[in-house]
Design a protein around this nucleic acid. Structure first.
Lengths: 163, 163
DNA sequence: CCAATTTACATAAGTGGTTATATAATTGCA
DNA sequence: TGCAATTATATAACCACTTATGTAAATTGG
């Protein structure tokens, strides 16, 4: 019932707004993953994907690859080690480096996710974005409205294709 | 030196990416505000603006206006009360409601910010977004590249206008 | 008209990130 | 060659948000 001030302020609140949309997308992605019985957090996904794509990585390279700080990468990687999805060991030539690899279980999870989750998620997000065009702020508005109307988990929706 | 996996995965990491860009914009907005000696956090700004725009608000209405959870609004409003920028008092008719208003100091800060910060920030962000067009993912890439090249605080830049 | 429900806010616990700093390994140079 | 500087990771302290839950006030209907 109250005006959405962040939306109304346009460029002035662009940062707040993008962060907010990102969190909303992450939450809905999590819901989609839960519904497919993928047993990890949505936010952990990029780390697994990074090692899958790029091969074994050091902690710092992982941080760069997913765009977080080094302490953030240390902690997130530690969680994945605890979950049995990452293996960590010191570098042979340089003992300071800690090399992260996917365990068999981690690789299996990525493989399953690539089959089950990625196509579904790709289609859902692509559907959400399919009618966006024009200036950024307008696309953000349409994106928010799209999420209001049909959450990610219900997409691609059979609704309202052009008649 | 490492591939940006979040960027490379496109729709699959859209949430992570938008959140990341939002945080980056907020951090740079903070730097701009610091340089102008505005003594609050960038993230607190939308709350002040909401009460300025909409008049006295309850905690829940404030949460709706800026798109955060009710506990988030309770805490953020409490901080602003501590800073002397918000006044809080129970509703007359309904003692459950807590009504937030701008103090004289809060109003003054908004007024000053409206003169000093908003035009500058509006121009900087507009400059950042000025050459964006096309699909959302491409605009995000250009936006990230733009922030890499010239931070918000150095905009509008005299660089590289079309010759 | 009062007991049950609902509403509004506060508090608790957890998550995921940050910056600043400490520690250990490596590199490089006088 | 050994000490100073650098590099890679870990740890600490903090912050802003979330969901879940508690508490008190208001509303409602039997």
């Amino acid at each position: 019932m109250v005006e959405d001030v962040v939306r109304a302020m346009g460029h002035l609140c662009l940062g707040t707004r993008m962060k907010r949309i990102g969190e909303r997308l992450q939450a809905q992605t999590q819901a989609l993953m839960d519904s497919l019985d993928v047993p990890i957090q949505a936010a952990q996904y990029p780390l697994l994907a990074a090692v899958d794509r790029l091969g074994p990585l050091t902690v710092s390279d992982l941080a760069d690859a997913v765009g977080i700080s080094q302490p953030g990468a240390t902690r997130a990687a530690g969680q994945l080690v605890k979950l049995g999805l990452f293996d960590i060991q010191s570098g042979q030539d340089d003992q300071r480096r800690r090399i992260l690899t996917l365990t068999a279980q981690g690789q299996q999870l990525v493989d399953v996710a690539r089959q089950l989750v990625w196509p579904r998620l790709e289609a859902s997000v692509a559907d959400l974005c399919s009618n966006l065009s024009g200036p950024l702020l307008g696309q953000l508005t349409d994106l928010e409205d799209g999420l209001d109307e049909v959450p990610l988990i219900a997409r691609p929706a059979s609704k309202r294709r052009q008649p």
